[in-house]
Amino acid sequence: MRSRKLAVLLLSALLVSAAVVAASSKPTVKSLGDALICQCGCNQTVNECNHLECPVRSQMRAMMAKEIAAGKGETAILQDFVLKYGVKVLASPPTQGFNITVWILPGIGLLLGLGFVVFIVKHWRRPPAAAAAAPAPIDPKVLEAMEEEMKKVAHP
């Protein structure tokens, strides 16, 4: 009973914190910088671009700041970037068209794997009856040899 209460408590704590996370997402230059790829050719996100004094990076950051100041939401800002630079500016592919497979397949893979493991576990299980059955008596000669050998390898 106690463990069930504990589980409920844990679960609710989990949900609360999830809600907190969801509520606190307002775009910033930093959060957008993680979602967009710098177009200077470095192939890294705007935040990670290590191209010193990268002009493209500062241009992109300026655009983010301007749009945030204009009060646009994250989706709208990302949309504007796509219009300007193309889909490749997004650090992760959009969830539509063919690109949705990149998001779905890992999940499918995970589930298929789980299905496979569950199948294997079921398939390999010793029938419970056999497991429960008392072990057959051991031939005394065998037992003697076995005990002797075990004594030799036994250490604390």
Binding site: A134, P135, A136, I138, D139, K141, V142, L143, A145, M146, E149, M150
Partner: peptide, 16 residues
Amino acid sequence: RNNYRAEAAGLMAASL
């Protein structure tokens, strides 16, 4: 324990 002992005994019997 019984299970393991049975396993060992099986192997010992095979060895003999």
